[in-house]
Design a protein around this nucleic acid. Structure first.
Lengths: 163, 163
DNA sequence: CAGTATTGTTGTTTTTCATAACAAAATGGC
DNA sequence: GCCATTTTGTTATGAAAAACAACAATACTG
């Protein structure tokens, strides 16, 4: 088969060409799609910024909840974060191995663990949060504006009550 | 060991009690956390609503992009959706097996595939989208209000340019 | 033409997430 | 107090999502 003459020009088909921007079509006003892309971007930035602390979003959230509710039972912590309790075990194991959190016997219930931050965990969380504010949230507010950020937070809160 | 007297009253420790609501602590104004929870809720609702069509969010997004950009090359589709091209293969395979999309030879490049929806794929997408509007987005607007939804979409768009 | 880059694909690994099962302990009916 | 049921933490397992490396075929560039 002879090589067909190409270089026929960009208008010889009705199909989408290469250089023009891709249309989002139905996705354009689909909230779930926009939400996912935004969340991915923010998490990616979070991950980058917190690489210095070797801390992923889920780990940070666990430390934050325990910090704000010391002594809370394990099942209540995982429930508050929407993490099922089976998957929560390994997550907590690692935080405990790193001496950031600890399981203590829950008063009055020998099945349960009451969770606490260690002293190291408290200062670690404080440092991590400060770093996050300066490096991460600052960049978020650069692209959003701080009034818009508050607005966005309240809109997202409404959404979470959906399911 | 004798059973210790319990029922000592809720104020005998300084630790968090059971029934009171769990504080979010540092998570309260952390955008990434709120974003993730909201996205999970919306995807969960999407999944529930689209169970009738056996269509997951990623699959829907692929159909929508092809529909809006017929003939676009495979690599450009996956790139537009932020899906790496290796993982895109199986995704597209399934849509092709279901006769919703098809790979065609790309004019002028024998490496590439130009992607199209089949006739069945077009009507399927249309039906799915209509169903989605009625069952899913309607519920979203119930909790948000339609003005707020537009506001939210534009805020999210800004965020996506972050990473 | 030679070297380099791109495209689609396969294979592998790592996360993430949901589910089932289980032992120990707590709870509630009676 | 006894027995059935429920809760808690845990292990194991599998599905789905995502990242990475390698490769053959093809395209591009000097």
């Amino acid at each position: 088969m002879p090589a067909p003459r190409r270089k026929a020009g960009p208008t010889d088909t009705a199909t989408a060409d290469d250089r023009q921007p891709v249309s989002l079509g139905l996705l354009d006003n689909l909230l779930g799609y926009r939400l996912r892309r935004a969340q991915l971007s923010v998490f990616q930035d979070f991950l980058l910024v917190m690489k210095a602390f070797d801390l992923r979003p889920a780990q940070f959230s666990v430390l934050a909840i325990i910090d704000a509710n010391p002594g809370l039972k394990q099942s209540r912590v995982s429930e508050a974060l929407g993490i099922n309790r089976a998957n929560f075990v390994a997550l907590l194991d690692e935080l405990e191995q790193r001496k950031l959190a600890r399981r203590a016997p829950a008063p009055g219930d020998r099945r349960s663990n009451a969770l606490f931050l260690t002293a190291k965990g408290e200062s670690f969380l404080k440092d991590a949060y400060r770093h996050l504010l300066v490096q991460h949230e600052k960049r978020v507010e650069t692209v959003l504006g701080s009034a818009d950020k508050q607005q966005l937070l309240s809109l997202l809160e409404k959404l979470t009550t959906l399911a």
